[in-house]
């Protein structure tokens, strides 16, 4: 999480909408002070864009008058910040100790196998992203996975296909 996964800063996959930059700029301009506010601004930027590609990082750097490397240094340090867009649904597998002791590693393996992707990767259809998270605090329900904001407790390997299908079906329905 804290180690830089790639040396180069990924660029955005497509054109980023201008109104999002306007929104971000307005947020920065309205802050009482930008002193010590970089992490706060990055949180906001990720909320607006969904992720932090090179263009967004550079925009913030120019706006705060700091080197782009400093922004990237912070982005790559914290696991909460992502430089890649996520899939439609993010599946967070709890890798906390309580879940581990109750077999979350098997759930993790099975999920990767089912979706054919690794951690922090997105399926080709753009539907699912797998993320490992450290303890979401629902240890009473261990092992736990979270799809977007919904928590699934006491998950077994057999439950996974059904859970995934619910979201696949939802996409088809909509």
């Amino acid at each position: 999480m804290t180690r830089p996964v790639e040396i180069s800063v990924p660029k955005a996959a497509g054109e980023l909408p201008n109104e999002k930059f306007v929104e971000l700029e307005k947020y920065i301009d309205n802050l009482d002070t930008t002193k010590g506010a970089l992490i706060r601004i990055l949180h906001k930027a990720q909320q607006i864009f969904g992720y932090l590609p090179m263009e967004v990082q550079l925009f913030i750097a120019r706006k705060l008058n700091i080197p782009g490397s400093e922004v990237f240094g912070v982005v790559s340090f914290y696991s909460y910040f992502s430089t890649q867009p996520s899939g439609k649904h993010t599946i967070s597998v709890c890798m906390g100790t309580a879940c581990f002791v109750r077999g979350s590693d098997r759930i993790h393996e099975k999920l990767k196998e089912e979706l054919g992707i690794g951690s922090n990767q997105t399926t080709d259809d753009g539907l699912f992203t797998i993320k490992d998270v450290r303890c979401i605090g629902a240890c009473g329900l261990a092992p736990v996975i979270m799809v977007d904001d919904k928590v699934y407790g006491r998950v077994t390997e057999e439950d996974l296909p059904e859970i995934l299908n619910t979201y696949r079906q939802k996409t088809i329905d909509s």
Partner: peptide, 21 residues
């Protein structure tokens, strides 16, 4: 002040650096 997912920030000097952005 929101953290951004780094275990080491529980250490007080690291926390202070993080709080400074």
């Amino acid at each position: 002040k929101l953290g951004a997912g780094a275990f080491v920030c529980g250490e007080e000097t690291a926390l202070i650096n993080s709080a400074e952005g």
